[in-house]
Structure formats: structure tokens, C-alpha cells
């Protein structure tokens, strides 16, 4: 089984993934059981990533309940790390909120794809399955054949959610019992996480490198030379670099060709 499910997939944008990374259940079987089975690799992948989130949240002095609130309610891996970074840098609430919403806009495309294959007809069912549509849930659900049943999808999402929330709690508590010498160096973990995510992304798409570099350069200039507020500088450089990337580079994108 290919463990395809780690947080870096949050950035891989498999709007219609063609890889099949887990056994697709037999259609006669109980859809809830199939959903839990399909969600288990996500659980395994989310747990340590969420531990990292809990650890970092602890390090920047969030409380356990605040960390849990993030993971239980927002349930959006990458943007939760963005949030910690902006909170630590002292950005204003509205700047942080706008940054998170921008980063999560990509879910529009995933939900649009999922909505074409779901069997959910009632408004309540649609409202429910939309909540847990993370990148990894989407990739897993899309890799199965045929229509996507609501109980299957709900069980898949619940399994992923459980891994994310329990990992957050475990990481937060683990961060409290680390030796004090190590605690000092934990400030680096957030950047370690971003560096690792970036590597995972550009391994699949080399044309992402200039886009990330453009955003890094723009942000540095805006913050250091123009003394812009960190949240605004972040949003402006992200949008400008994305516009440049969208305009110049995508013809060579592998995942984009697949997505069409």
C-alpha cells in the first residue's frame, strides 16, 4: 500500500488524482466500514503532522483548548500552520483570517469535483460532507470508482478528523514534557515544517520553485524595505507570485494536465 496521504498532499492539488493508493472497497460491503478502512492511511498520515501542529502551538503559547479548537473546527492542515506563524509574528486578527481564507480557496475546485460524483441529495448531507473535504480526503474519495456514497464519505472524513484531532492533543502534551534544553530549539519546527512541505511540492513540480522563490523575495522586500505589516505583506506576495506563476508557467505542469 502506498502511503500517499501526508500533509504535503495539501499542496499537491490533485484535483482529480489518477493514482490509486489504497484498496478500493468492495461495493457490497457496509459503506461505513469501507470509509473507515479507506480513511485509515489518512489517520496514520495526519497523526504525526497534527502532533507537529500541537507541538508548535504549545511552543508559541497557545493553550491546549485553543489548539484543539483549531483542529476540531477549522480542520485544514496547512492553513493551521500558516495561522501559527502569523499569530507568532503578531499579525492582526483580520490579516490572519484573510491569509487563511486565501490559502483555502483551492478547496473550491476539490468540492466542485466531489459534488459531481456524490450521491448526497439532501441539503443536510451536502452541508455535512463539505465540512471534511480536505486535500487528502478528496484524493482518497476521488480514487474510488463510481458514485461516492454519503455514509462512505462521512466515515472517511470522520476517520481523518479523528487522526488530526488526537494527533494535535498528543503533540501538545508531548511538547510540555520535553527537556528544557530541547524546548529552546523548538521555535525552528515551524520553519522545518515549511521547508519540508516545500521540498515535497517541488519534487513533483519543478516549475513551483520560481513561484516559491518569487513569493519569498517579494515578502522579504515588502517586510524589510517597505515595512509592511506581516499579514498584508504575506497576502500581497502570495497573490502576486501566484499571478506570475499562473501567467507564465503552467503549460508544463504535470498535475494540471492530469486535472483536465
Amino acid at each position: 500500500m502506498d502511503f500517499y496521504i501526508f500533509l504535503d498532499r495539501a499542496f499537491l492539488n490533485h484535483y482529480s488524482p489518477c493514482m490509486s493508493m489504497h484498496p478500493v472497497g468492495h461495493l457490497g460491503k457496509n459503506p461505513i466500514k469501507r470509509g473507515i478502512t479507506a480513511g485509515f492511511p489518512i489517520f496514520i498520515g495526519y497523526f504525526p503532522a497534527a502532533m507537529a501542529f500541537g507541538l508548535i502551538a504549545n511552543n508559541i503559547d497557545l493553550t491546549l483548548y485553543e489548539s484543539m479548537l483549531f483542529s476540531m473546527v477549522l480542520f485544514a492542515g496547512a492553513s493551521q500552520f500558516f495561522a501559527l506563524n502569523l499569530i507568532a509574528s503578531g499579525a492582526a486578527v483580520y490579516e490572519i483570517v484573510i491569509g487563511i481564507i486565501l490559502v483555502n480557496l483551492r478547496h473550491l475546485l476539490m468540492s466542485a469535483s466531489l459534488s459531481r460524483r456524490t450521491t448526497a441529495k439532501s441539503i443536510g448531507a451536502r452541508l455535512m460532507i463539505a465540512f471534511g473535504n480536505t486535500d487528502e480526503v478528496f484524493a482518497t474519495a476521488s480514487s474510488s470508482e463510481g458514485p461516492i456514497e454519503t455514509p462512505y464519505l462521512a466515515a472517511l472524513e470522520a476517520t481523518a478528523w479523528t487522526g488530526w484531532v488526537t494527533g494535535t492533543i498528543t503533540g501538545f502534551i508531548g511538547g510540555s514534557i520535553l527537556p528544557s534544553g530541547l524546548q529552546q530549539s523548538i521555535g525552528i519546527t515551524l520553519y522545518g515544517m515549511f521547508a519540508a512541505l516545500l521540498i515535497h511540492n517541488v519534487q513533483n513540480e519543478y516549475w513551483y520553485i520560481p513561484v516559491a522563490a518569487a513569493a519569498a523575495g517579494l515578502n522579504t522586500i515588502l517586510v524589510r524595505i517597505f515595512h509592511m505589516q506581516p499579514g498584508w505583506a504575506f497576502a500581497v506576495s502570495m497573490i502576486l507570485a501566484s499571478l506570475i506563476g499562473a501567467a507564465l508557467l503552467p503549460k508544463v505542469s504535470k498535475s494540471f494536465r492530469e486535472a483536465k
Binding site: 496547512a78 512541505l197 516545500l198 513551483y208 516559491a212 504575506f234 506576495s237 502570495m238 503552467p250
Partner: peptide
């Protein structure tokens, strides 16, 4: 394309 590339741009600006 813009939505697709946005998370990567975010990582660059975060680092």
C-alpha cells in the same frame, strides 16, 4: 492555475 499555485507561493512567503 492561480488557485493551484497559491499554496506553494504561500510556503515561499512563510519561509
Amino acid at each position: 492555475r492561480f488557485l493551484q499555485v497559491m499554496p506553494v507561493a504561500a510556503l515561499g512567503a512563510l519561509l
